[in-house]
């Protein structure tokens, strides 16, 4: 069967009105449950979320790569002859992929500037909530891309995996440089610092596996053996 995937890097510009912010995730990052929050805080989150959605400039870039090679012994993944130190968990989970997708998504810099401005004025609560909402919106852009790709590959009777990012599941953040070198100019306008951090900060990059036996899993942290990871403690997976 011939696959009709476009192997060239591709850009999407989702409408900002499609972005959503999971309020419970914001509260979890504040160490709280919904029942711990008073009206003052809930109204503040709601108001700032609306402002952030108006400020966001969502962009998603992706690239299909064929013939990925996974070595579960060395815990490495080879994409277009470039070796990634994806670690045991990710390498194992992706090993049946027939393709992988590298992606970079962002909401731009407006929300992070707004957050920094508020912090600078001494409004650390507002600044911190804006920062958390920005993270949620960056995940939301990535959700939109992930869902879009899931539908796209389903046309070829394939499934898509969960998404994995450098810095998590023991995948060193330094591999960002390789990931972005493969994405080339289709980097969603994201640049990297020397220490491999993304600018704009409210961005998500990573890898997805695609194949006939690949599935998106409901559970997250149970697939990873990183017991010290913040996400495991925060979301108690």
């Amino acid at each position: 069967m011939n696959y009709l995937f476009n192997f060239e890097p591709t850009e999407l510009f989702p409408d900002a009105s499609l972005l959503t912010c999971n309020r419970e995730n914001v509260l979890k990052s504040l160490g709280m449950k919904l029942t711990d929050a008073d009206d003052y805080l809930l109204n503040l989150i709601e108001q700032l979320t609306k402002e952030c959605i108006q400020l966001a400039s969502p962009k998603a870039n992706y690239l299909f790569i064929e013939n990925p090679k996974f070595n579960t012994t060395t815990k490495e993944t080879s994409l277009n002859e470039m070796l990634f130190d994806t670690g045991k968990t990710i390498t194992t989970l992706l090993k049946k992929s027939e393709f992988v997708v590298l992606f970079a998504c962002t909401i731009g810099q407006n929300v992070e500037h707004y957050s920094k401005d508020e912090m600078g004025k001494g409004n650390s609560l507002e600044g911190y909530i804006l920062d958390l909402i920005g993270s949620e919106l960056a995940e939301s852009v990535t959700d939109i891309l992930h869902n879009y790709l899931e539908i796209k590959v389903k046309e070829y009777e394939m499934g898509i995996s969960n998404r994995y990012s450098p810095g998590y599941c023991n995948w060193p953040v330094s591999d960002q440089h390789k990931l972005f070198s493969l994405l080339g100019n289709y980097n969603a306008g994201i640049s990297l610092t020397e220490s491999s951090l993304m600018i704009p900060v409210k961005s998500v990059s990573g890898i997805l596996g695609v194949g006939k036996s690949i599935k998106r899993l409901d559970y997250k942290c149970r697939i990873c053996d990183d017991e010290k990871c913040i996400l495991r403690h925060q979301f108690k997976h």
Partner: peptide
């Protein structure tokens, strides 16, 4: 003791700074 959370701490710190 988890009797207050990050928001209350941030607001308290703001009051202290003032």
């Amino acid at each position: 003791q988890k009797k207050i959370f990050v928001p209350q701490m941030l607001i308290a710190a703001k009051a202290m700074n003032a």
